Simulated scan of single mutants.
Amino acid sequence: MVTSRDVARVAGVSQSTVSYVMSGRRSISAETRKRVLDAIEQLTYQPNAGARALASQRTQVIGLVVRFRPGADTTGLLPFIETIAGCARAEDHDVLLVTADEGSAGLTRLAGRTLCDAIVMMDIEADDARIPVAASLRVPVILIGVPDDSAGLHCVDVDFAEAGRLAVDELASAGHDRIVVIGHAPDVVERDINFVRRFQRGADAAADEHGVAIELVSPVPPNRAGAEDAVREALARGGERTGIVVPNSPAVQPVLQALLDRGVVPGRDVSLVGLCTDASAEASTPAVTNVSLEPRDVSRRAMEILFRLLDRSGERPTELVELIRPRLTRRDTTLPAP
C-alpha cells in the first residue's frame, strides 16, 4: 500500500510537506506543490480516510437527512441531492444519505458516532420535533425548509409565499375571477410540511388583492383517481373562467392528464399553473406554465452557508433564513390576458 512516506520520497520532500500540500493548511511554493502532486499521480496515492479523520478531527462527510415516504416525490428530490453532493465533492467531502425515518434518534446517531462533520436536513415539518435536538448537536446543521421555529438554525428555501403570489397574479391577469388550488397528498397535509401553509398564505393574499375568489381542494391522494376526483371538484367549483394552481409537484402531470381526458384543454378552456421544476414543465405536453422550485439554487446556497459554518476561522453568516426568489415562466397552459 502506498503511503505518504512513499510520496515524500519520490517528491524529494518531507512527509509533513506532503500533508501540508494535501490539507492546504500552509503555504507551499508552486514548484514544491507540483512535485508532490506529480508524485501522488505517479503512485496513484489515496490518503487513508480514517487516519486523516484522526489527524484533523474531521470525517470529510456531510450527512444528508431526507425521509423517503410512500408517495414521496423522489424525482423532485434528485436535483437537490445531486447539487448537494456536487458542492460537497468540490470541498473534498462525501455525502452520507440517511433516508430512514429515525426522527431525533437518527440525528443523535449521526452526530454522536462522529459519522459526519455537518448535517443537512430536508422534509421539514412546520412544527418539527427534530429541530430542538438538531439545535443541540455539536456539529453544524442547516435546514432546507423553514419551520415555525428554527431554534437558531440556518434555513434556506424557495420563497413559497412569493410562489403563491406569482401563480395567482398570473391567473388574475388572464381574467380568471375564481381560482382553485389543487393541494397536496394526505401524508403531506397531515404532517404539516412547512411549505404548504407558506404557499397558501401567499396565494390567499394575492387573491385578496385582486378581488378574486380562491378555493382549496385538499388533500389529494397521490394516484390517478385522486387527480381525477380533484379535477372534477375543481371544475364543479370553478365556473366558466377557471384558473387552477397545482402546488403539489407530483400531481401536476396527473392533473394535466385528467383535464385532457375530460376534453378540457389547458390554455384554451382553463388556465393551469404548476409549482415544479422547469425541466418537468418543459417536458409536459402541453408545456406547463410553472413557478420554479429552484432546487439547485436552494441546495447550492445551503451548502455555501454550511461550509462557512464549518470554517472556524471565517465569518459566520448572520441571516438565519434565506429565501430564494422563484420565477414564473409562461408556457402553453395559461390563457392570454384579455
Rank of each mutant, 00 (worst) to 15 (best):
residue 93 H to P: 04
residue 115 L to T: 07
residue 252 V to C: 05
residue 144 I to R: 02
residue 233 E to L: 12
residue 299 S to K: 03
residue 253 Q to L: 14
residue 267 G to D: 10
residue 46 Q to A: 13
residue 147 P to F: 07
residue 88 A to F: 04
residue 333 T to K: 05
residue 94 D to M: 11
residue 63 G to Q: 07
residue 249 S to H: 04
residue 172 A to Q: 00
residue 258 A to I: 01
residue 299 S to L: 05
residue 220 V to Q: 00
residue 21 V to F: 08
residue 146 V to L: 08
residue 89 R to G: 07
residue 221 P to N: 11
residue 154 H to K: 04
residue 131 I to H: 01
residue 178 R to C: 02
residue 163 A to D: 00
residue 25 R to C: 12
residue 203 A to D: 02
residue 187 D to Q: 15
residue 299 S to Q: 05
residue 252 V to T: 05
residue 309 L to I: 09
residue 166 L to T: 01
residue 129 A to H: 11
residue 291 V to S: 00
residue 159 D to I: 01
residue 218 S to A: 11
residue 39 A to V: 07
residue 91 E to Y: 12
residue 123 D to W: 03
residue 201 R to H: 03
residue 15 Q to L: 14
residue 167 A to E: 02
residue 42 Q to M: 15
residue 67 R to S: 14
residue 22 M to N: 14
residue 241 R to P: 04
residue 205 A to L: 10
residue 63 G to A: 13
residue 304 E to K: 11
residue 205 A to V: 09
residue 310 L to W: 07
residue 76 G to F: 04
residue 223 N to V: 12
residue 52 R to N: 10
residue 201 R to Y: 01
residue 330 R to V: 13
residue 171 L to G: 00
residue 109 R to V: 08
residue 246 V to F: 01
residue 258 A to R: 01
residue 289 T to W: 01
residue 63 G to W: 02
residue 136 S to A: 14
residue 111 A to T: 07
residue 322 E to D: 15
residue 110 L to H: 07
residue 249 S to W: 00
residue 56 S to C: 11
residue 25 R to Y: 10
residue 23 S to P: 10
residue 85 A to H: 09
residue 288 V to W: 02
residue 292 S to V: 06
residue 223 N to P: 12
residue 242 T to D: 02
residue 154 H to C: 05
residue 145 G to A: 09
residue 55 A to F: 10
residue 211 G to Y: 12
residue 56 S to T: 10
residue 12 G to I: 14
residue 231 V to R: 01
residue 129 A to K: 15
residue 321 V to G: 08
residue 59 T to K: 10
residue 288 V to Q: 02
residue 8 A to S: 15
residue 222 P to S: 10
residue 92 D to N: 14
residue 82 E to P: 03
residue 277 T to N: 04
residue 8 A to H: 08
residue 329 T to D: 07
residue 49 A to K: 11
residue 247 P to M: 03
residue 228 E to P: 01
residue 188 V to C: 00
residue 138 R to V: 09
residue 52 R to V: 15
residue 30 A to T: 15
residue 252 V to A: 03
residue 200 Q to L: 13
residue 265 V to S: 15
residue 217 V to A: 05
residue 303 M to N: 12
residue 49 A to Y: 08
residue 139 V to M: 12
residue 232 R to Q: 13
residue 320 L to F: 15
residue 161 A to R: 00
residue 310 L to F: 12
residue 66 V to N: 09
residue 113 R to M: 14
residue 132 P to N: 13
residue 244 I to F: 00
residue 118 A to Q: 04
residue 11 A to F: 08
residue 149 D to N: 11
residue 52 R to F: 11
residue 191 R to H: 11
residue 229 D to C: 14
residue 199 F to L: 01
residue 19 S to C: 11
residue 326 P to Q: 04
residue 47 P to K: 07
residue 41 E to F: 13
residue 53 A to V: 07
residue 141 V to E: 08
residue 246 V to T: 04
residue 325 R to P: 03
residue 282 E to S: 09
residue 205 A to R: 07
residue 59 T to G: 13
residue 160 F to Y: 04
residue 1 M to P: 11
residue 267 G to Y: 08
residue 75 T to R: 15
residue 332 D to W: 02
residue 99 T to G: 03
residue 160 F to L: 00
residue 91 E to T: 14
residue 195 F to L: 03
residue 183 G to R: 01
residue 325 R to C: 06
residue 80 F to T: 07
residue 29 S to M: 13
residue 288 V to A: 05
residue 153 L to Y: 04
residue 109 R to M: 10
